[in-house]
Design a protein around this nucleic acid. Structure first.
Length: 827
RNA sequence: GCCCGAGUGGCGGAAUGGUAGACGCAAAGGACUUAAAAUCCUUCGGGAGCAAUCCCGUGCCGGUUCGAGUCCGGCCUCGGGCACCA
């Protein structure tokens, strides 16, 4: 018997055997209930990092646990394989084609995943860059197009004039190009959008149908969608045949408008300033805000800048002329890109009005205080009665909102409206390495979708990656020039590709029938497997990826292609892996490579540590010594179990129920641990405390082995050993499998049913109760387990020591918690 | 700035509103060994005490409660997201 377990031999041996036995293939159907366990698929960057190991270790515990619980488990893996880094690599290293780079990375990472021993059904692997996959991404784009959910409009992109290329937000650092530092410009391009706003209300309301999602994620999505009720109000413009429509959530303050503000890049601005002296200055402001992110523009520390346009708006309700400003704090993307300003009752308007000395009028008066516009130090945003508001005077503002909307609708000046912060989804990318948008432009017929039969629109492989100022696809005459499917005349292909979020919004459907060449998925398979029962991934995806996937699912459900309204029933958002308090990154030089850890300690140790070091939702601090500790633990398991060899075979397990003495204590521990691990893994996902409990079981077994052999019941030891291996199997699958076979068991430990605890075995006769007086611990006493509160109180008050302590005082109240404590409140 | 989290020993963390610090790491002392490694045993929040034991202690300030690490209000610090990284 070896002192240490030989992971270098054991792990590859079992990985090969599991693959031969197809241990992880899941049939569509059968007698067992289904369970779809899914981890977010990785971008094939080249190497697995610790965040991946954490994600997939968590998923593997869930998948293996559910399989042992008797579920038919689908546990697939694939690759989110389109994206910027492959193209960057091609540009940087010249000779490497993004496809080659990507497929080589996939091969390397697949190998690493296999070395971790995760229970994937590799027959279902997908890669989004494979034509057999992106054919269906294109098909789904066309489905959206046919349903009126895809449209084109102008939108700005980041443009580096020096590199002559479009930049992703990530490639813009401090307003300059990441590579050459040149100031980034904005360029307006015709781009494709998906109408996710049409689903805003359902995406919001259906969050209530997701009790298995963390509240924080639901709150973030709720805020992201940003529903607000209010009114759209149209102001005419003095002396011009133009009008200006604003959105406000506070129509009750309409009489308090003292100026209006437009986003500087608003198309109306040009008409207002035409021929006026301030025209040049306003245009300069428009140019400067275009280069800024919304983030920078709306930050309160950013100075609010505004310029008078020279024009006046006319308030429909009182005919007042108010100046129209162009202001950097108004966003073109939100609402109508124009606001009515009520400085007395909106903080941003207040600050702006103070800075530019604009007038202020109080129209909501709180009870008890008299607001004075000259002495106010901040806007009053609370409740009150309407004043200075014509016929509405004296009305509470809460009623005023609806009343003003009714009035505006009667007069035709405006209407009640629900506005969302959510914007439509821009999917056009001026990039090569993505799924081509399957659209053809014909001089005669206009926009023509590629017929289903012509899919996929193949990405040409012979492409140069020298920046030319155009997307690489535009220089591919063979790709661009085509014939119109409708009239047969000459036509051009769309050269933009799709946002990779499109590819990742539906991959969990493809896993159900990944090799289907006739349709994106087999409807029967999807009906059987979906929705995903457990989805696991980084919290950084809490908004975009999860919202887009929910949107896709709702469209597919409306189209009758899937039966589920939501894609993911339960969601677990895992924290990051840190080293020395910050995220592992090459630039910080604090990266710990999973390869090195697996080579030095084996996959079981790496997985166990990462599950033990922190609860899954929290960030995890990497510790080399902590890894050592887990390795020691597995060796302790090995040294206890391996020498037993097949000495336990044939022994009967103890009968259920209570047992006296040391055997009873051992048996009690075994069953307490079954209970704790089952609750920690099954209900709470507290894998760290589950591992702790298994460690306690092992410690108890070592102590039990110290008991003279005559006093021990070998069946109790057998039960403890089997329990230890079965409970540990999802965490450390290789060593447990090896020990399972060493101790004379046939079959795989991963096919064992998850154990049930024996409630009688863990029952205690007596428990220690704490007696407190006025919340301070005064005495401990033994009480029958499960005693009722009344009985406990009687017992405590009957104690001589307690009687002495409370003598001469008045007992106000006695509180007792069964099996815990009695608190006596005295005066 | 806006939205969402998290702060507990030397460290990672544990604790249905009920004995704060389970489990693990590190450290110190000891056993075994010619020696080292490995392994095993003991101690391990701070303070007082010979001891039984007592007092203090969960980022800060306040509140609710017989009782708060946990609930509520207000701060501070750190982290995630902010729409073309995925």
């Amino acid at each position: 018997m070896k002192e240490r377990y030989d992971f270098k031999t054991i792990e590859p041996k079992w990985q090969a055997r599991w693959a031969e036995q197809n241990l992880y293939t899941a049939p569509d159907g059968g007698g067992k209930p289904k369970y779809y366990c899914l981890e977010m698929f990785p971008y094939p960057s080249g190497k697995l990092h610790m965040g991946h190991v954490r994600n997939y270790s968590i998923g593997d515990v869930v998948a293996r646990y559910k399989a042992m619980q008797g579920f038919n488990v689908l546990h697939p893996m694939g690759w989110d394989a389109f994206g910027l880094p492959a193209e960057n690599a091609a540009i940087k290293y010249g000779a490497v084609h993004p496809a080659q780079w990507t497929y080589e990375n996939i091969a390397a990472m697949r190998e690493q995943l296999k070395q971790l021993g995760i229970s994937y059904d590799w027959d279902r692997e997908v890669a989004t860059c494979h034509p057999g996959y992106y054919q269906w991404t294109q098909w789904l784009f066309l489905l959206l197009y046919k349903r009126g959910l895809a449209y084109k409009k102008k939108a700005a992109v980041n443009w580096c004039p020096s590199c002559a290329t479009v930049l992703a937000n990530e490639q813009v650092k401090d307003g300059g190009c990441e590579r050459c530092k040149t100031a980034v410009e904005k360029r307006e391009l015709e781009q494709w959008f998906l109408k996710i706003t049409a689903y805003a209300d359902r995406l919001l309301k259906d969050l209530d149908k997701l009790p298995g999602w963390p509240d924080k994620v639901k709150i973030m999505q709720d805020n992201w969608i940003g529903r607000s009720e209010g009114a759209e109000i149209t102001f005419t413009i003095d002396g011009l045949e133009e009008s200006m429509t604003v959105f406000t959530t506070r129509p009750d303050t309409l009489f308090g408008v003292t100026y209006m503000a437009l986003a500087p890049e608003h198309p109306l601005v040009e008409k207002l300033i035409a021929g006026k002296p301030q025209a040049a200055a306003v245009r300069a402001l428009a140019l400067s805000v275009r280069g800024q992110s919304d983030l920078a523009r709306t930050a309160t520390e950013t100075e609010k800048i505004g310029l008078f346009t020279g024009a006046y708006g006319i308030n429909p309700v009182n005919g007042e002329k108010v100046p129209i400003m162009a202001a950097n704090y108004v966003l073109m993307e939100y609402g109508t890109g124009a606001v009515m300003a009520v400085p007395a009752h909106d903080q941003r308007d207040f600050e702006f009005a103070r800075k530019y000395d604009l007038p202020m009028r109080v129209v909501i008066q709180p009870a008890g205080a008299e607001l004075n516009p000259d002495t106010m130090t901040e806007a009053y945003v609370g409740a009150g009665l309407m004043v200075n508001s014509g016929s509405f005077n004296g009305m509470p503002d809460s009623e005023g909102i609806a009343a003003v909307i009714r009035y505006l609708e009667e007069k035709g000046w405006g209407r009640g409206l629900v506005n969302y912060r959510l914007r439509d989804w821009l999917i056009s990318r001026q990039r090569y390495w993505g799924a081509p948008i399957p659209i053809i432009y014909c001089e005669q017929c206009g926009i023509v979708p590629v017929p289903d039969a012509d899919l996929p629109v193949m990405l040409p492989m012979d492409v140069a990656f020298t920046p030319t100022g155009r997307s690489p696809l535009e220089d591919q005459a063979g790709f661009v020039n085509t014939v119109c499917p409708a009239c047969g005349g000459p036509a051009r292909r769309e050269t933009d590709t799709m946002d990779t979020f499109m590819c990742s919004s539906w991959y969990y459907y493809r896993y159900t029938s990944p090799r289907d060449t006739e349709q994106p998925w087999d409807p029967a398979s999807v009906r059987y497997w979906l929705p995903v029962d457990q989805y696991i991934g980084g919290v950084e995806h809490a908004i975009l990826h999860l919202l887009y996937s929910r949107f896709f699912t709702k469209v597919l459900c409306d189209a009758g292609l899937v039966a589920n309204e939501e894609p993911f029933t339960n969601l677990l958002t895992q924290g990051m892996v840190l080293k020395d308090g910050s995220k592992m990154s090459k630039s910080k030089g604090n990266v710990v490579s999973p390869e090195d850890i697996v080579a030095a300690y084996g996959a079981d140790t790496a997985r166990l540590f990462i599950l033990f070091a922190a609860p899954p939702e929290r960030d995890l601090e990497w510790s080399d010594q902590g890894v050592e500790g887990c390795y020691r633990f597995l060796n302790r398991v090995w040294r206890l179990v391996a020498p037993l060899s097949d000495s336990l075979a044939g022994l009967p397990l103890p009968a259920s129920g209570k047992m006296p003495g040391v055997n009873g204590e051992m048996r009690r521990m075994t069953h307490v641990v079954i209970k704790r691990v089952t609750e920690d893994v099954g209900n709470r996902f507290n894998f760290n405390t589950a591992v702790s409990a298994i460690m306690e079981l092992l410690n108890a077994m070592y102590q039990y082995k110290e008991v003279p052999e005559l006093d021990r019941d070998p069946g109790v030891l057998k039960e403890a050993v089997e329990t230890l291996l079965v409970l540990l199997a999802p965490f450390a699958p290789h060593i447990t499998e090896e020990l399972w076979s060493l101790t004379g068991h046939g079959g795989s430990v991963h096919r064992m049913p998850w154990p049930l605890y024996d409630p009688e075995a863990i029952q205690e006769d007596e428990v220690t109760i704490v007696v407190q007086i006025n919340g301070k611990v005064r005495e401990r006493l033994l009480a029958p387990a499960g005693a009722k509160p009344d009985e406990l109180q009687e017992l405590a008050l009957g104690q001589e020591a307690i009687k002495l302590l409370i003598a001469g005082k008045q007992v106000v109240k006695v509180i007792s918690v069964p099996d815990k404590l009695v608190n006596i409140v005295v005066k």
